[in-house]
């Protein structure tokens, strides 16, 4: 462990690394522990000083802080600010940290008190609207995905140690989907966000015949206007598109423009076919920076 790391004769520092979780399922961290074959090499490359899911010791100085989850409570803001202060590099780990993730679905409802009651019943918990990390602190690096891919994190950590700039694929999932020789899910009658979502997952879902839900957020060029047309051409309504675009929060700004159209579409339906109970009507997003 104590031997100096080097690559091609260039000495490298072994970074002190901490893993932290805010509101999340901790599935991303679990992904990291999930591959025994490379775990030892991984542990040789970094010095883990804080990882609740993997060890009991902890320290409060670290070079890289990986933060999983989104911010849903006031105390999490304090915690996050503190992590930021202690870390040289703050990494948003997974869709929740990057975009709010599945958690941010609750932001779609006008009445958060109603949501709280539905979820917690008579045992309320102090929560607020869901925010990604970047709403409160500077995020140096994002690792996308729900969950993240272990191989990708390992590559990113290796790159950080070696001193390479971390680069994500800029193109959409379609590229990787075709390379996996899949038949386009649209042709099979299923909606998919592959054409607009950032690749890097190796088309994990489409390769298993599940349409993409956009967990990695938009690609560098995401032609959402065209995607909307395509969805309609293939017989999917705005509701279906919105469901997908809103699922992980990466497409929030486009979803905001689409939502009024959807409301118009829904209100033109006969009353009994309305899908949404009146108390929790979808409204244009109100997510604002605190």
């Amino acid at each position: 462990m104590s031997e100096q790391l080097s690559y091609l004769g260039v000495p490298l520092a072994r970074p002190k690394v901490g893993f932290f979780e805010l509101s999340s399922c901790e599935g991303c961290q679990l992904q990291l522990l999930n591959n025994e074959a490379t775990l030892l090499d991984f542990l040789n490359l970094v010095e883990i000083v804080n990882f609740r899911e993997g060890m009991s010791e902890r320290a409060d100085t670290y070079d890289i802080a990986f933060v999983e989850g989104s911010v849903t409570r006031k105390d999490e803001i304090t915690r996050l600010t503190e992590i930021r202060r202690n870390a040289k590099i703050l990494v948003a780990l997974g869709s929740c940290a990057c975009f709010g993730g599945v958690n941010q679905l609750k932001n779609r409802f006008r009445d958060l008190e109603w949501v709280k009651k539905e979820v917690y019943g008579d045992f309320p918990i102090e929560t607020m609207e869901v925010h990604p990390l970047a709403d409160f602190v500077q995020v140096d690096l994002s690792i996308f995905g729900c969950p993240i891919k272990k191989e990708e994190v390992e590559r990113i950590v290796t790159d950080l140690v070696v001193g390479k700039t971390v680069r994500h694929p800029e193109y959409p999932v379609c590229m990787e989907c075709k390379a996996n020789e899949n038949i386009c899910l649209f042709e099979l009658g299923e909606p998919c966000l592959g054409p607009v979502t950032r690749a890097g997952c190796d088309a994990w879902c489409p390769s298993n015949r599940r349409g993409c839900w956009g967990c990695r957020g938009p690609a560098e060029t995401a032609n959402l206007t065209e995607l909307e047309k395509i969805m309609h051409t293939y017989g999917f309504d705005s509701e279906t598109i919105l469901d997908r675009l809103e699922c992980f929060g990466g497409f929030a700004s486009f979803a905001d423009t689409l939502r009024p159209k959807n409301i118009a579409e829904l209100s033109s339906l006969p009353a009994q076919t309305k899908l949404i109970p009146s108390g929790c009507k979808k409204v244009p997003a109100r997510r604002k920076k605190p």
Binding site: L8, G9, V10, V162, G163, K164
Partner: peptide, 9 residues
């Protein structure tokens, strides 16, 4: 990375 390499690399 090259900028970090030394003579003899």
């Amino acid at each position: 990375f090259l900028a970090k390499m030394e003579r003899g690399a």
